[in-house]
Amino acid sequence: MTTTSVAPPTPAAPAAATAISERKQDRDGDGQGRRSWWGFAFAGPHTIGLALFTVVPIVASLVISFNNWPLLGAHTFVGFGNYAQLLADPIFRTVILNTFLFTILYVPLNLIVSLGLAAWLTPKIRHRHIFRVLFFIPTVTPIVANVVVWRMLYQPGGAIDASVQTVFGFHAPNFLADANWAMIAVVLMSVWQGFGYNMLIFSAALDSVPENLVEASELDGAGAWTTFWRIKFPLISPSVFFATMMTLITSFQVFVQPFILTKGGPGSSTLTLVQFIYNQGFQYQQLGLASAGAWVLFIIILGITAVQFIGQKKWVHYE
């Protein structure tokens, strides 16, 4: 149910890599040991549940997207009509641009902050587990609670504005009501609440970099910076790759932050794809249009993932 947050990149992807690599050696489960029916029994409940609640809806979603499907009344097949209507809609174009803008700002910031802090929080740092917990708290807090606090901070007269007024004597921008600031405000809030997950992943990865390699590098006279990029980063690059991918995927699904901070405004400057889907589906009852929007989202995500997988050869090092 990551629908609610930009944050948690699901840690499944590395498993994907092993599964795929393993598949080459072990065609269809006939490794050592005898086959039995127990496999079906054990995997059955999960497989049926997943089929019913993920595979069926995704197929249904595609079917709906090819229909004019109001919540009430008959539906008619329209082929690619919904998609054509979306592409012709200036608001939908804005929505796509906003979603990309959010991703372009959010993903690098998230990765820099989480990687930086993970690198900083080496085992040498006293009480590092306390820092880890602190940085992780917003990630596990209900995102609605986080957003609400930030709305209070961003508000004119709120903590940020009041501080700026007290120190500098002028008003801070009206972050959430100013089209130039609203997206930045949403991104900053999202990074704050979302990077903890990646930080924990990187931190665990960095911990397992063999100490002797690091020491050898230091012996060669390399500084911490060089050591990090020459030795540590290549070793943790699989983790960075999968974290990047999952963060990208989830950032395309941003919804709660703009929904509560700005309602998509001012104007349409923070209207994102998922809010567009929600509005089309549940405010205007155009399920066909909403599903088409959802499939555009899905296709974007598939495309990005494919590009990532192709690009990974250049910088990801598997042992």
Binding site: A177, D178, K263, G265, P266, G267, S268, L271, N279
Partner: peptide, 15 residues
């Protein structure tokens, strides 16, 4: 809904 999104730009003088 549109007033909540766009109206503030008018009232706040951005447009």
């Amino acid at each position: 809904q549109l007033f909540a999104q766009y109206g503030i730009q008018a009232v706040n003088g951005q447009q």
